[in-house]
């Protein structure tokens, strides 16, 4: 089960934050097929958001074929977004971890790392290609 962290100051719509965090968890293998997403009730209890917003996010994820609502039971993961490359222990991930160790060693702050990573990502993955 995952827990959503809703940042009300981020400027990103709440339902979009739920969609993004779900995709992220699917990508990282934190959610796998068969897992149940928290019910709207559970999300509301944790973060005081509008349950209609949660359901709207789930409908969008369902439209994308990632999850499936089962009446009276909840919403379940249908498809994973994790690949061998993004799972824990994968070579790419280990390389990135090693790179980050070197960055840390070189005295880079968290913001420095984010900026550097973001910059290179922009270069290699210009926005407009793919999504999120």
């Amino acid at each position: 089960m995952i827990e959503y962290r809703i940042d009300k100051r981020s400027g990103v719509a709440t339902y979009m934050q739920i969609i993004q965090q779900t995709r992220q968890a699917l990508r990282l293998g934190l959610l796998v097929p068969g897992d149940r997403l928290p019910t709207a009730r559970e999300v509301v209890e944790a973060t005081a958001v509008n349950p209609n917003t949660v359901l709207k996010a789930y409908r969008e994820l369902e439209r994308e074929g990632l999850v499936e609502a089962k009446r009276g039971l909840g919403t379940f993961v249908r498809r994973s977004l994790a690949t061998a490359q993004t799972a824990p222990g994968s070579p790419l991930r280990l390389e990135l971890a090693a790179w980050m160790d070197r960055a840390h060693h070189a005295g880079l702050s968290r913001e420095d790392v984010d900026a550097l990573y973001g910059d290179v990502r922009e270069e290699r993955y210009p926005t407009g290609e793919g999504q999120f």
Binding site: A40, R41, V44, E45, A48, V49, N50, P51, N52
Partner: peptide, 14 residues
């Protein structure tokens, strides 16, 4: 305020 909203949103969800 947060608790009240949570409570009200719970009624909406339930």
């Amino acid at each position: 305020r947060d608790e009240t909203l949570r409570l009200l949103m719970g009624e909406v969800a339930d």
